[in-house]
Simulated assay, not measured.
Amino acid sequence: MTKNSMCLDHVVLWVSDPVAAARFYTEAVGLDPVRVAEFVAEEVPFPSVRVNEETILDLAPRTFAEHMRMLPGAADSAGHPVNHVCLSLPTNAFDALRARLEQHGVPLSEIGHDSYGARGNAPRTFYFRDPDGNVFEARHYDE
Rank of each mutant, 00 (worst) to 15 (best):
N83H: 06
F24Y: 01
V49G: 01
R23W: 06
P47C: 04
R119P: 13
P81I: 02
S77Q: 00
E143M: 10
E27C: 04
R69T: 14
L101A: 00
F126T: 03
S77E: 03
R23A: 14
D132M: 12
L13K: 03
L59H: 14
V34M: 07
R50V: 10
Q103A: 12
R98V: 10
R98F: 09
S16T: 05
P90K: 12
H10L: 02
S5F: 02
R100W: 01
P33Y: 09
V29F: 07
S48Q: 07
A22S: 03
L8N: 09
A93Q: 07
H140P: 02
P18D: 11
D9H: 12
G120L: 09
D58S: 06
E143C: 08
G73T: 11
I56N: 05
D9G: 05
H104R: 13
L87Y: 07
V29D: 05
V44K: 13
T55A: 15
L108S: 00
E110K: 10
V51H: 04
F24H: 13
G112D: 04
S109R: 14
A41P: 11
E143N: 07
F24V: 11
D142V: 10
N83S: 11
H104W: 02
R139L: 04
R23F: 04
P131R: 01
E42P: 06
L97A: 00
V49W: 00
